[in-house]
Amino acid sequence: MSAAIEGRDLKRYYTVKGSGFFGKPSTLKAVDGASFSLESGKTLAIVGESGCGKSTLARLATMIEKPTSGNIFISGTDPHANAGAEKSRLRQDVQMIFQDPYGSLNPRKKVGTIVEEPVVINRNLPAAERRELAEVMLSKVGLRPEHYDRYPHMFSGGQRQRIAIARALVLQPKILIADEPVSALDISIQAQVLNILMDLQEEMNLALVFISHDLSVVRRIADQIMVMYLGRVVEQGDAKTIFANPCHPYTQALLGATPAVDPKLRRERVKLTGELPSPLNPPAGCAFHTRCRFVQDFCSTTAPGLEMKFERQVACHYAEVAMKS
């Protein structure tokens, strides 16, 4: 059975104009070789900080942008190799929810209209049936059919996220990309929205790609995890394995920096020196070497590739050293 969504060596480069009149243009490597494979009903978490490329990867997955190189496969088919109707049909299978509940709903439209929009665009249903479909979705996410006629500003952040989920799932897609869906929400509301996501994932057998920087949430819901740094994948594999024993120094730093209430869950705080390098000017060799505590000369000359070590994919020349610590 082919995976619901698959990415093979995805790359997305942007050309950035040089500074000044005669500046040379430079290349921004937003995503530099990411591969993944996700089955229906499973959750892949993409983790990383600003500039790591996770949002760009989301845009590639939803086909808002075309990869510079590499392929995306939706249920085994490459949408960019097709055109017109087939591409449009594949696009409907991948939907997205966003981070900012206040910006992702059109403030001038009624909630019902917002939820119906994908149906209006992609299907030919009479108005009454469309409305019924929208009201069913609203109930599924815990809102009432009466909310159809309200405007987004009347709802709280958590409720807006639910509306966004209803909109994303109204066409019964196979894959849902969630870009930091709960980061802007209060803890108790996070829990409600996460529950809804998990319930709907089970009900609709969705493949869920969950992008987040909050490792405590990721630990809770992910089956697989992919850690990105400056456009490259540094560690990838089964979530439980990686959380129990992070190998890559960056993953260790991330886990160590995540504050935990339960002292048993706290890891040694790895002091990461320095700031995140600019994606326009990534360090030579291994992108992480400027902040790594295990750095050696070799790291600044050659970029490590992803290799299978210790039951996960990791990109580090000195993975064994890092693992022992």
């Binding site: 409907q92 997205m96 910006g103 992702s104 929009e117």
Partner: peptide, 24 residues
């Protein structure tokens, strides 16, 4: 982001221009 959301839903040029963005 609501514009991106409409694009992900499959909205075409005219819809984005006059129905999604213009009222705002």
């Amino acid at each position: 982001e609501y514009v991106v959301a409409s694009k992900v839903s499959g909205a075409g040029k005219f819809r984005i221009m006059f129905i999604t963005i213009l009222p705002n």
